[in-house]
């Protein structure tokens, strides 16, 4: 029982939930993308609270770029990116909120009724963690790591090929 950690977890957890809620409740699309960024940063800080330093910093770094790119795509593709026209961009609200509540509640129930085998092992120091993660990546999980890399390459090529306009191909 670590009071400090509980306070941080509650604080940043509620920040993450609040901003995640704002994502779908605001009319302005840039605001919604940057709320998602704030929520993701709060998740990254939760990683840091749980002493996963590398993953936390990596997550915070990646999300900055990813969510800003999301913001520009929102602005390009939406009819009303500034939210000044007060358009409603949602459908089947009742059905989706019931389903969301059911899935969230069932997970919460599963969490509460499980006996978690908490371990007393101490977490390695951050430098040791980086080392161990590197060894894991390059030995046991190397195949998975390489697969992830190759799938990024494939996705890049596929996405570029998909996004090219028909006219430029025909030229």
């Amino acid at each position: 029982m670590n009071m400090e950690r509980i306070i941080f977890l509650l604080l940043f957890g509620s920040t993450a939930i609040w901003f995640a809620w704002r994502v779908f409740m605001t009319k302005s699309m840039i605001r919604s993308a940057l709320s998602l960024l704030a929520s993701m940063v709060a998740i990254g800080i939760l990683f840091l609270v749980m002493q996963a330093e590398f993953l936390g910093v990596l997550h915070i770094m990646m999300m900055a770029t990813e969510m800003t790119i999301m913001a520009i795509f929102m602005m390009m593709f939406m009819m009303d990116p500034g939210g000044m026209g007060d358009m409603d961009m949602s459908h089947q609200k009742k059905y989706s909120s019931v389903f969301a509540f059911l899935s969230g509640a069932s997970y919460a129930a599963a969490i509460l009724f499980t006996q978690w085998p908490i371990t007393a092992d101490a977490v390695p120091a951050p430098a040791q963690q980086n080392h161990d993660l590197g060894i894991e990546l390059m030995q046991r999980s190397m195949m998975i790591f390489e697969t992830a890399g190759v799938s990024i390459l494939v996705a890049m090529i596929a996405a570029t090929a998909t996004a090219l306009s028909f006219n430029s191909v025909n030229k």
Binding site: E53, F54, V57, L58, M61, A64, M67, T68, P126, N130
Partner: peptide, 18 residues
């Protein structure tokens, strides 16, 4: 003295863009 300092400066500079 973060042990992931080299990554952290990247993270900080990414927020300049934001």
């Amino acid at each position: 003295g973060l042990s992931t300092g080299a990554l952290f400066i990247n993270a900080a500079f990414a927020y300049i863009m934001v």
